[in-house]
Design a protein around this nucleic acid. Structure first.
Length: 575
RNA sequence: CGGGGUGUGGCGCAGCCCGGUAGCGCACCUGCCUUGGGAGCAGGUGGUCGGAGGUUCAAAUCCUCUCACCCCGACCA
């Protein structure tokens, strides 16, 4: 490709909207342009990188027996009603009507479409297992998109769906896909990524993992241990580092006028928040819920939902709280109307004694000892506190460290979550009808592209790993008005093309500084520079993106040199 | 959805407080000149100032409404 006619110009200044490095370089480099909030066009440069990434994914999916399909982006609401997600999902599912007033949605994921596609074509155990996948557009009407391609509304996702006759088979293939994902991210050039256990949320089902690129600008919080334990905030199960202090003294009221918050009470009584127990009230589809948790801890709502088997959770208002006999600000699990509320005692206060509300205005109680005082109170016990940095690893007991991550992929064991309501059935060996067992697997292609830049750049632009670079060779001709420069560059350009090298030829009459700056933003792994300076010695210069030093080679050896370097670069990302 | 902010040529911005009919840098076009890290000189093209309404002799500027976009938070299958 010649730069003189290449669409997508490199910009000198950072776009004012961009915060993340990848966002700045994607815009400045001429990879993407924004059309609307969270909606981007890909320019030729961006499209080429995207295709490279997709090809890596495609190869990996094919290698584990995946069968590529394409499913629609527009779905009739009917299939989403079959699984209940039409109503279960909030505003992020974009809905609209067609000319005959029929409800439709823009697909945000394709479980329903995949089951629909498969359920009539597969009806025997002999056909199972199999996996289908696609690389397709998704739309999620995110409340807040941000960070360039990191979080968008319209995006390309590789999504895969595997169908099995039994859970052993599912688990086996799930592990194969986990491996495939690790290979994909490694080949793509990510430097610091891990898989973490995650909560499967409304996707439903059992085991799931998220693939996270560790990055301080990431949106997700991770807890990591040197022993290899990794988990996201929702599922992390850090153990409390301090031992609880237990008192034998009886309950004792203490006046705490106007002290409603944990902080106020702690300061007033000259104790730490860790020595208090707080009451958090929620409403849910199963009614009012009270969580008793240590004062310095937050409720992990995901774990609470899982514990109670509920889907919706929101803070209760004061009136609702009073209605069950509690006094907001001074609430206690003791003396409530137990027909109206379900009490969850968090493990953070299962042992020890605490200051707690007295269910009386301006009053708290001391020496609240759940192991003693909650005996007569109906409740369940669960560990629903949010892990904090420094909590102990549930597997090895060492302190957990906290990190941020960008989710670039996920895999879910879905079970029969979708096959059951949509009646994706098959006949087993005994002729009995059974529901297919499913898993789904996603990778955000654009997000992965941005993440690759996050992991591979310098101050001047991306340093694309050869496997995903838009071009592998950037050919600069310094001063095309010099006949010899022009002829040599043109000849090299032709030679590279004929040898199947993806070359971008800067044939513009730009000064060297401009050419080099644009080349940095384009980030091709190799740069070949033709100039009078070297031509006088019959040489051209070859430079690696991201390295200061360069070498010169005789013009007629440049092809083999380039080939050799490319082979070296590409092999370093193979596994 | 809550809080904050911004809309002026392709990009980045000034002008707005204190109304008088739009300016700077980059980019783009022409010519000269220059060629190893975003050169220089000269001359040009391009904007009904996000939109609608209002106040006024006169609105980018003041008022009302509205739309879009950004940041922080909530949400995130």
């Amino acid at each position: 490709m010649r730069m003189s006619h290449f669409v997508g110009k490199q910009l000198k200044e950072d776009p004012k909207d961009a915060q993340m490095v990848s966002h700045k370089f994607l815009i400045r480099g001429g990879y993407i342009r924004q059309l609307s909030t969270g909606i981007y066009s890909f320019l030729p440069l961006g499209f080429r990188v995207k295709m490279k990434i997709e090809e890596i994914i495609r190869e990996a999916m094919n290698a584990v027996g995946g069968q590529e399909v394409v499913m629609p982006v527009v779905h009739p609401a009917d299939i989403w009603k079959e699984t209940g997600r039409f109503d279960a999902i909030d505003e992020s599912l974009l809905r609209f009507k067609d000319r005959s007033d029929k409800d439709h949605v823009l697909a945000m994921t394709h479980e329903e479409a995949a089951v629909h596609l498969v359920r009539n074509d597969v009806n025997s155990y002999k056909q199972l297992p199999f996996m289908i996948y696609q690389i397709q557009t998704k739309f999620r009407d995110e409340a807040r998109s941000r960070g360039g391609l990191i979080r968008v509304r319209e995006f390309t996702m590789k999504d895969a769906y595997s169908f099995h006759s039994g859970s052993a088979c599912l688990e086996e293939f799930y592990a194969v896909m986990h491996e495939a994902y690790m290979r994909i991210f490694k080949r793509s050039g990510l430097k610091n990524f891990i898989s973490v256990q995650s909560d499967s949320g409304i996707m439903g089902g059992g085991v799931s993992h998220e693939f996270m690129s560790v990055n301080p600008a990431g949106e997700d919080t991770l807890f990591l241990c040197e022993c290899g334990y990794n988990a996201n905030r929702e599922i992390a199960d850090g153990r409390l580092p301090q031992k609880a202090v237990q008192s034998d003294r009886p309950l004792e009221e203490v006046a705490t006028p106007g002290k409603k918050t944990i902080q106020d009470v702690s300061e007033f009584l000259k104790i730490t928040p860790r020595e208090t127990a707080k009451c958090v009230f929620y409403t849910s589809e199963k009614g009012l819920i009270l969580v008793v948790i240590r004062g310095d801890r937050e409720v992990n709502e995901t774990r609470l939902k899982t514990h109670l088997q509920i889907e919706k959770l929101s803070y209760a208002d004061d009136e609702t709280i009073r209605n069950c006999g509690a006094v907001p600000g001074y609430a206690s699990p003791l003396g409530l109307d137990n027909d109206k509320i379900s009490i969850v005692l968090d493990s953070s206060v299962a042992e020890g004694s605490y200051v707690c509300g007295a269910n009386k205005e301006n009053t708290h109680i001391k020496h609240f000892t759940p192991s003693r005082d909650m005996k007569e109170v109906p409740h369940t016990e669960a560990s629903v506190y949010t892990t904090m940095e420094g909590d102990l690893c549930p597997e090895c007991g060492k302190p957990l460290s906290m990190a941020r991550g960008i989710e670039i992929g996920n895999i879910f064991q879905l079970g029969t979550k979708y096959s059951a309501p949509m009646k994706a059935l098959f006949l087993d060996e005994k002729g009995e009808s059974r529901e297919m067992i499913m898993a789904s697997y996603g990778i955000g292609v654009g997000r992965l592209m941005a993440t690759i830049i996050e992991d591979n750049h310098d101050d001047y632009g991306p340093i694309w790993p050869a496997a995903v670079a838009p071009f592998t060779v950037h050919l600069n001709a310094l001063n095309l008005k010099e006949e010899e420069v022009r002829k040599t560059a043109e000849a090299l350009y032709e030679t590279f093309i004929q040898n199947g090298i993806e070359v971008l030829f800067d044939d513009r009459d730009e000064r060297p500084g401009s050419q080099f700056s644009d080349a940095d933003l384009i980030g091709a792994p190799l740069r070949v520079i033709v100039s009078m300076r070297n031509l006088e010695k019959g040489e051209v210069e070859i430079k690696r993106r991201g390295e200061k030093t360069s070498t010169t080679v005789p013009v007629n050896e440049s092809l083999s040199k380039v080939k050799g370097l490319l082979a070296e670069l590409l092999s370093s990302s193979e596994i």
